[in-house]
Write a protein that binds this DNA or RNA. Sequence first.
RNA 1: GCGAGAGUGGCGGAACUGGCAGACGCGCAAGAUUUAGGAUCUUGUGGGUAACCGUGGGGGUUCAAGUCCCCCCUCUCGCACCA
Length: 876
Amino acid sequence: MAQTYDHQVVEAKWQAHWTQTGLFQVTESATTPKYYCLEMFPYPSGRIHMGHVRVYAIGDVVARYKTMRGFHVLHPMGWDAFGLPAENAAIEKGVHPNVWTQDNVAYMKQQLRRMGLSYDWDREVNTSHPDYYRWNQWIFLKMVERGLAYRKRSAVNWCPSCETVLANEQVLAQEGKDGGVCWRCESVVIQKELEQWFFRITHYAQELLDGCDRLTSWPARVLAMQRHWIGRSQGVEIDFPVADPADDLTAIRIFTTRPDTIHGATFMSLAPESPLVEQLIAGRTEAGPVREFVQRVSRLDKATRTAADREKEGIFTGAYAINPFTRERIPIWVANFVLYEYGTGAIMAVPAHDQRDFEFATQYDIPIRLVIQNPEGTLAPEALDSAYEEQEQAGVLVNSGTFSGLFVPDGKQAIGEHVEAQGWGTRTINFRLRDWGISRQRYWGTPIPMLYCEHCGLVPVPENQLPVVLPEDVPFTGKGGSPLKESPSFAKTTCPTCGGTARRESDTMDTFVDSSWYFLRYCSPKDTGQPVNPEAAKHWMAVDQYVGGIEHAVLHLLYARFFTKVLRDLGLTTVDEPFVHLLTQGMVTKETYWCEDHRWVLPSETRKEGGQRLCSQCGKAIVIGRTEKMSKSKKNIASPEDLCDRYGADTARLFSLFAAPPEKDLEWSDTGVEGCYRFLNRVWRLVYEQLPLMGEVNSKSGSESSELLAKLQRATHHTIQKVTEDLERNFQFNTAIAALMEFVNELYKLWKDYPSDALTVNERAGWRSAIESLLLLLAPFAPHLTEELWETVGHSSSIARQSWPVFNPELVASVEWTIPIQVNGKLRSKVRVPAGSTKDQVIATAQSDAKLMEWLQGETPRKVIYVEQKLVNFVI
RNA sequence: GCGAGAGUGGCGGAACUGGCAGACGCGCAAGAUUUAGGAUCUUGUGGGUAACCGUGGGGGUUCAAGUCCCCCCUCUCGCACCA
C-alpha cells in the first residue's frame, strides 16, 4: 500500500474483503451476551441523503463498539419498500412500482456498502416482497380472530377528482378556500363516509400508557408526546333528561372531567355529526337551519375544522334538557367544536369554568353562572372576562346546593358518587387515542386478505392461501380509485366456504403496518412458517439500541409498541416493549444562499469577491439565509456520493459524529469535513513514520522505566479511559473523537521531543502500544483506514474482531499534580506537588508560592479550602 | 395556550456529581518549507493598554455558580377546541 492515504483504494479493498469473508454475519451464541443494534430502515426513495449518513454512522459505531466489547451483535438492515412515491412514479413515468422500488433498493444498497456499514446483509428484509407481506396478512387474520381488527364506517378525506382517500398531511390549506385541497390536483377535498378496516389499538391504551413509565432510556420528549397522544382522562358520564321528549330519546349522555361544575351547566352542545341532532329537531321550525349548519360544518376536512383559531359557531336546536342537579331547563345547541368521536359526542356546557363554553355563551348570550369561587372570593359572574378553570389552587364550590363549600377535588369526588348513587351515570376513563384506520385505496401496499362473498358475507382468506399477492397487470392512471379494483384476475375469486363467486377486498394496508414489526422479522428473516421464530425472538429481543429520527416519535414508535404487545399475546415474543434505549438523532442542516433575483441558489452558483458572496448569474450580493434542514428546494444539500469520492466514507462518518452530539442538529460545514480528512491523514502519516521504530519489538517486553515511556503510557491509557467513558455515557461520539485528536496531537509532540534514533526497547514497545491503541479506539469510527493500518503494523486478523482496549488506572495517574491556587475564589497561581500529597503538604507548598504571597500581602487567611487534587482557595 | 428543549469566543461545540470557562475542530494571524500556489509543520488566537470584565438579562445561596434557587427575555421543536 502506498505511503500516502488514498481513501478510494483503501475503502474499496476492505469493503470487498468484509463481504468476501462474511465478517458481519451473526448467529445466536450462548457463550457471549447478545446485543441488538437497530437503525430505522429507509424508504427506498432512490438516493441516500446526509440524514441517512448520520443515522447509519451512529448505529454502526454502536454495533462495532459493542462487538469489540465482546457482545455478539445483531445489526441488520432492510427496506421500508411500500408507499405512495412508487405509485406516483408509475403514474408519471410509466414505470411499474415494483421495478422502480427494486431498482432504488439496489442502488441504495450499493451506497450503504460504500459507507462501510457492518450489516449482516443475510438478514435483509424488503417489506414489498411477498415473503414479508404475507406475514402482515397472517397477523391481520389473527387480529380479526381476536377482535383486534374490525370494519366500520368512518369519515375520511376524499378527493373527488382523483377518486382516492387522502391522508391528513396530503390535504393542503389554500387561501380563499374554506377547507383543504388535494396536493396533486388541487380539487377541494371533501369528507366521505367509507367502510374502513381498523386495528383496535385502544384495547392496549392503558398498557401503552403504563409502559411509558418503564421506558426510562427514552428521551423525555418522546414519552411526553406519546402520553399526550394516548391522552387518558378520568371523568363521569351523566344522563341529562330531555325535556318534553317527542320520541324514545329520553336522555342525552355527556362526558365531563369537571362534575364539580355541573350546577353551572347552563346549556348543552352536541357534535354536528351526532345522530341525536336529527332526532331532536324532527318536526321543529329549527330543523331547516340546523340541517344547513350541520352540512356546512361537516363538509370541512378535519385539519381545517379543528384548527384552534377557528371561530366557535353553533345553532340552537329548539329542544331543552334538564340539568339533573338544578332541575332547570337548559337549551340544547349544536356546536362546531364538539367532537363526535370523543367521549359521547355531547357535552354539558359550563361557561363560567370552561373557556370554550365561555366564548360560546358570550357570543350567543347564554347565561353564565359562577359555581367555583377562587380562594380570595373575588370572582363575580358579570365581571368575568374569561373562564375560571383553575383546579390546582383551592377553588371552592358555590351555588351548588348541598355541595357548596367543598373544595374542587372533594366536589368532583362527592358529585361523582352522587351521580352513581342516583343511577344518573357512571365514572369512566376516556382516551384521546383512536383506533388505527389502516385501509388505503392504493396499489403499492399489502393486500388486506378478506373476501366479500355473495352468500357468506365477509370471509377471511384461509391461512393456507396466503400470501394474497399483488397482481402485475394493473393500469396506473391516478384516477378511478384503487388500481386493484381494475384487475379482474385479482378482484374476482371464489369463496373458500361455499365455492360461490366472491370479490376480494381491494384496499391495501397502511405502510406503517410493515414497519411495526420488522425488528422481529430480523431475528429469523427466512422463517417460512411464521412471522418470527419465538426462539430467535427470545434470543435477540428486545432491541438494545434503536436509532432514528424524532419525526417518528408518535406514529411509528407507538404502532411498534402496539404490535409488540399483540405478537406477545400471540406467543411469538416474550417482551412487552420492543426498544430498550432510544436515540433520536437531530437533523442535518446547512446554511442557505438567497439571491433576490434567482431565489435560493447552490453554493456553486455563487462566487466570493472581497469577502462578499455574489450570485454568479447576476452579480448581486447573496443573502446568507437561516441554517435549515437540508432540502432540495432550499438548495442547501450536500451529496454523500460527492463526499465519498472526495474524502471517503471514513471522513464522512467521522464528521457526522464529530460536529455535534448525536441528538442535536448537525450543521454541515465543508471546512469541517476537511478538518476530519486532515485528522485521518495525520493518523496515517503517524503510523507510517513510526513504522520503522515498531519493527521487531514485542509490545510487552521489559520493565525499566523512562520519562518518554511514562508519558506515552499516560497519554494512551488516559485516552482509552476517556473514549470508553464517552461511549458508555450516552454515546458522546463528538467528545470521544476530540479525545482521539488530542491523543494524536500529543503523540506528534512526543515524537518531536524525543529523538527516535535513541529509543530503548521499552520505549519502542510503548510506541507500538500507543499506536495500536489509537487504531483500536478509532476503529468503530473510521473502519477502513484502521483496518488498513492494522494490517500495516503487522496484524493479519480484522481489527473489527479485536477486543476493546482496557485502561490501567495506575498508568493514567500522573506523577505530579498541578493545583490551582485561588484567593477569594479567583485564580491567582498554580503549584506543582508530587502525586499523593496530603492536604497539609499541598497547602504548605501553596503558601510558599511567591505569587500567592504577593496576593496575600502578609494577611492570614480566615479560611483555607482544599479540594482533593482540584484546588486550594484562600479566603481573606 | 400546553408540553419538551436550547441560549457559552468570529463559527460548530467542550466543561460527568458546584471547583482552572472556552477541550477538540473550523476560521484567522505570524513563521518554516516551497520558484509560486496548494499541501504539510510550528506558534498564537474570548474582550480590554491595564486593574479587571466575561457563559441571554436581573436578583439570590456559597469560600467558589455556565452548573443550584427565584423572576424575566429570546429562539427551536412538538401538540393544539379531547369537554
